[in-house]
Design a protein around this nucleic acid. Structure first.
Lengths: 334, 334
DNA sequence: TTGAAAGCGCTAACAA
DNA sequence: TTGTTAGCGCTTTCAA
């Protein structure tokens, strides 16, 4: 280690010019054309041979901008969020910035700490995918107040009066799904979900009736996978025609329980997934479900964040439509 | 937006003291005890009411340290890497820093750009999980030379003479697996792998013989999943007793192909996985395989990175042992 | 055609 | 008990 790190000052000294000149040349400023051909060449060669690299910290300090976007996420390891996270990181790169991951494991305390940290201008903006911030504890309120004007913020799938949000619109996909279920003679369908996250169940309950389906709710908690096992057992006892799982991970857990209970999917029980990931198609059986095009969704998230970064104050709620993807986890009528 | 951001200077002015005093008080330095009770209180109250937050950029600039660790990873969305990524992020948080994700989609060009970016001291250290950097192109060589002494670096599962690396030791797990296969009457086993990543196949070929197994290699490329389908067909034609898939994602892809071909697992064909993730246990059937304890592994990665950050130059190769996890994807002898 | 100096926000010697 | 000052590496007026 300990190879010397070159600064612009040293470069200037060695080149026998001022730091200004070096800065102008290396940044290819218009004024560089007024620097003599000779000096320019000397500076470039020196920079090359000493592997000069501008110090990002100094730059960031100067511009008051890091080019880093913070991503506060409850969970980044389950397939659905992993996909989202990677695509966000890719889109960030495409737009010339980097994504900083701050997993919070759905822990409000950690979310608050994370936001506190991000509020110190370590990042140019924040994308937040975490419901707990919606809870109105005293500390979240304090942060909400503090963040205004400090860090551009966009939330994902959250509902708030004073923060822009990009949401999945479950309605179109759910309608397609219910129509498909009805056509295949399915009458009763259970939503397997965590009641702490209400958006899906609202659409579910409202739409099921319209399609002549009998809707039921079976709850579990993301925090404790044992509750999912118990929920699965309740479903096995009840024997609906179909189960709609709240996420791909939930669906896989459920299928795993079904396998242990000797229940075949889709022969004995149909299953569909909300928030389908690519991985769903590789499951056995391949899982049908509702999906929002990640590219589209992420584009909206960044567009809105850029608006905030550019100082546009308008609070918007953007909804990205879902659609049904049919694979083999739903029993079809012959 | 546009709420004023408070600096320590303003705070000092309003409090009628110098910035030094404010700095000392707010940072709870030992000298703060020599500041009058009264002044201290005034400063704290002012800071609170104006929601003062120290400017990270200025701090970072001053200390020449950001508290950010860069994670260069070929792929962060597949279950195995998603798990690794999240755990790294968590461990980083636990150690008081943040993880910056820079996905490279196994693209050498992007890896180089990424490293160039990270070399500008935007980060305190880099964890790299990407084989392509091992290739000796002119540009990677230039970067390798440049990074020395600039950014502490630790690679994952790579082999290099001048960079510390933490590796999976496949040997113990593979030995356990082969013993288990042998006991269950399995004779021929195919390794389904990408030849660009040699470590697994070396152990595989060496150990298979010792356990009286007949080893075969069937190759595909991570870059193109069509090659995996073709590889699967070759395996179906060949009909070995068991297949050892190079990753959980590969295994799922393979099982998906098997399902379409009407081949039952494990009745018709056994399968095991290297680089098993948690998700493997939720698959249908639950996948057996070799796994390295992520907590242990990640601890080693960070320990070594911290050594580098603390200026310890010694190049080390650390190997973390794998072990077998038995589930239901291998046909057992009755 | 080039350079000097100020300033970004903060900390830490050194003074008073 | 508190203040002055220099400096972290860079860009950017303004002067020469």
């Amino acid at each position: 280690m300990s190879g010397r790190v070159v600064t612009i000052t040293e470069l200037a000294q060695k080149a026998g010019v001022s730091t200004t000149t070096v800065s102008i040349v290396l940044n290819r400023k218009p004024q560089a054309r007024r620097v003599s051909e000779n000096t320019r060449k000397r500076i470039w060669e020196l920079a090359e041979s000493l592997s000069y690299r501008p110090n990002r910290l100094a730059l960031a300090m100067q511009r008051q901008s890091t080019g880093i976007i913070g991503f506060v996420c409850g969970d980044s390891a389950t397939p659905y969020y992993a996909e989202l996270t990677e695509q966000l990181a890719n889109e960030a790169n495409r737009r010339g910035c980097q994504l900083l991951m701050t997993p919070t494991v759905w822990d409000t305390r950690r979310e608050i700490d994370t936001m506190e940290m991000l509020l110190t201008r370590a990042v140019d903006g924040v994308i937040m995918c975490s419901q707990a911030f919606e809870n109105c504890s005293e500390s979240t309120e304090r942060i909400k107040r503090a963040y205004h004007g400090v860090v551009p913020l966009v939330t994902i799938n959250a509902e708030s009066v004073d923060i822009s949000t990009v949401q999945y619109d479950y309605e179109p996909g759910m309608a397609e799904l219910f129509e498909y279920l009805r056509q295949n003679g399915i009458r009763s369908v259970v939503l397997l979900d965590d009641p702490e996250f209400p958006p899906k169940r609202q659409v579910f309950s409202r739409l099921a009736g319209e399609f002549g389906l009998e809707p039921r709710l079976v709850d579990f908690s993301f925090r404790d996978m044992e509750t999912l096992k118990r929920a699965a057992e309740r479903i096995f006892a009840d024997r609906p025609d179909a189960v709609l799982a709240t996420s791909d991970l939930t669906a896989m857990h459920f299928c795993s329980c079904a396998g242990q209970a000797g229940i075949r999917i889709p022969e004995d029980l149909s299953i569909a997934v909300i928030d389908c990931s690519q991985l769903s198609s590789l499951y056995n059986p391949p899982l049908s479900g509702i999906r929002v095009d990640p590219a589209l969704f992420i584009g909206e998230v960044f567009d809105e964040l850029e608006r905030k970064i550019n100082g546009i104050p308008e609070i918007r709620t953007i909804r990205v439509p879902s659609r049904l993807e049919i694979r083999n986890s739903i029993k079809v009528k012959l």
